[in-house]
C-alpha cells in the first residue's frame, strides 16, 4: 500500500514498519486551477498546488494520505481533502508544538494511533510492526548521524537530499567542487528550480528544506542512545521532536540555534530565504533570521508559479554585494 506524505514530521520509519510504502509527495508546478476553488487568495500556495495535483489525478496510485497539524494551512488542507470523495483514507497526525516529556508522551500516543490506522489497512500484525519499528528507528539514527556529519563537513551540497522516494537516504560521500557557499532556507515548492539557478551561478548551496536535509539531519549535541527497554513509539517521538532538525514552526530558539550552528560549520557567506507567500511561520522566521543572524540575507517570495527571471535578477544583485 502506497502511503503519501509531505511533512517532515511524518516518520517513514513508522509507515514502513506498519507495512506501507512511504511516498514523499512533491507536487508538480503548473497553473493552479482546481486548488483556487477551495482556498482564498491569501492562503498557502503549497496547499493550492497540492490540491490541484491531487484532484487532477497525479497521485492515483497513492492509497492513503497522511497530514500533520504542523501549521494552519496543513490542518485546513487535511480537512478539505477529508471532506472530498475518498477522503476517509486520509489521516491527520496531531503534532505538539512544545518539546519535553509531556510533548514526547503525547506525540508517542498520536504515533500509536497512526500505527493502528495503517495496520487496519495493511493487515500486518502489531507484534511484527513493533519489532520492525525498533529496528527502523535504530538504523534511521545511524544513517542520520552519518548524514549530519557529512553535511556539516560540507560534503552534501546541492539537491543531493531531494527526490528520495520513500524516505530513502542519499548516497554519500560526494565529490564537491568549489564555489561561493550559501545557505538556502526554503519550503516545499520550486526548490529544485532554485537550486538549479544557484548552481548555474557557481554557488555551493546547502539546503535546509522539508523535501531535503531537514528530514534527515540531527541537531547539534545529539547524544542519543536508545535504551533497549524503551517504548519504540516514545523513541520515535523523541527522535522527531527532540533530535531531528527543527523547522520554521519552532521552537524558535532551537531553530535559530540550529541555523546559526549550521551556517557557522558550513562557513557560508550568506543566506537565501526562499519562502511561500502567506506562510505565517516563514514570515515570522524571516524577521528573526534577519534580526539575529550576522549574515547577509536575500529573501525571495513565491506564490503558485515559479518566477525564475525575477529570482535571477535579485540573486545577481545579492551576489554582487557578496563578491564585490
Amino acid at each position: 500500500m502506497k502511503v503519501g506524505y509531505f511533512c517532515g514530521y511524518l516518520p517513514p520509519e513508522l509507515i514502513r514498519s506498519a507495512g506501507g510504502e512511504p511516498v514523499l509527495l512533491e507536487p508538480e508546478g503548473k497553473r493552479v486551477k482546481l486548488g483556487e476553488k477551495y482556498f482564498p487568495t491569501p492562503f498557502c500556495p503549497f496547499s493550492k498546488v497540492f490540491l490541484d495535483n491531487l484532484l487532477s489525478g497525479s497521485w492515483e496510485k497513492v492509497g492513503t494520505l497522511l497530514f500533520t497539524r504542523s501549521c494552519d494551512a496543513s490542518r485546513r488542507l487535511y480537512e478539505t481533502v477529508s471532506s472530498l470523495p475518498g477522503g476517509e483514507s486520509s489521516f491527520l497526525l496531531d503534532l505538539p508544538h512544545e518539546v519535553g516529556p509531556l510533548a514526547w508522551n503525547y506525540f508517542a500516543h498520536q504515533l500509536k494511533k497512526l500505527a493502528h490506522f495503517l495496520l487496519d489497512r495493511t493487515g500486518k500484525s502489531e507484534k511484527a510492526m513493533l519489532s520492525d519499528l525498533e529496528q527502523e528507528v535504530k538504523s534511521s539514527l545511524i544513517i542520520r548521524r552519518k548524514l549530519t556529519e557529512e553535511y556539516q563537513a560540507g560534503r552534501l551540497p546541492g539537491a543531493v537530499f531531494l527526490g528520495k522516494e520513500g524516505g530513502s537516504p542519499p548516497d554519500f560521500p560526494r565529490v564537491v567542487r568549489g564555489g561561493l557557499p550559501l545557505f538556502l532556507i526554503a519550503s516545499h515548492l520550486w526548490v529544485r528550480d532554485l537550486i538549479g539557478l544557484l548552481e548555474k551561478k557557481s554557488i555551493l548551496v546547502f539546503e535546509d528544506t522539508p523535501l531535503g536535509s531537514r528530514r534527515w539531519l540531527l541537531r547539534e549535541n545529539t547524544t542519543f542512545l536508545l535504551p533497549p527497554e524503551e517504548d519504540p513509539f516514545l523513541s520515535l517521538s523523541r527522535l522527531y521532536l527532540e533530535w531531528k532538525a527543527p523547522c520554521p514552526r519552532g521552537p524558535w530558539r532551537e531553530r535559530l540555534a540550529f541555523i546559526q550552528e549550521m551556517t557557522r560549520k558550513l562557513g557560508v557567506r550568506g543566506v537565501v530565504y526562499f519562502y511561500p507567500k502567506f506562510c505565517d511561520f516563514s514570515l515570522y522566521e524571516l524577521k528573526i533570521v534577519r534580526d539575529e543572524l550576522s549574515l547577509p540575507v536575500l529573501s525571495l517570495e513565491y506564490d503558485t508559479l515559479p518566477n525564475l527571471a525575477q529570482w535571477e535578477t535579485r540573486l545577481e544583485a545579492f551576489l554582487e554585494v557578496l563578491t564585490p
Binding site: F43, A73, L77
Partner: peptide, 10 residues
C-alpha cells in the same frame, strides 16, 4: 487569517 479562511469551502 489563514485558519478561518481555510475553512470557508466546507
Amino acid at each position: 487569517c489563514r485558519q478561518s479562511q481555510g475553512m470557508n469551502f466546507p
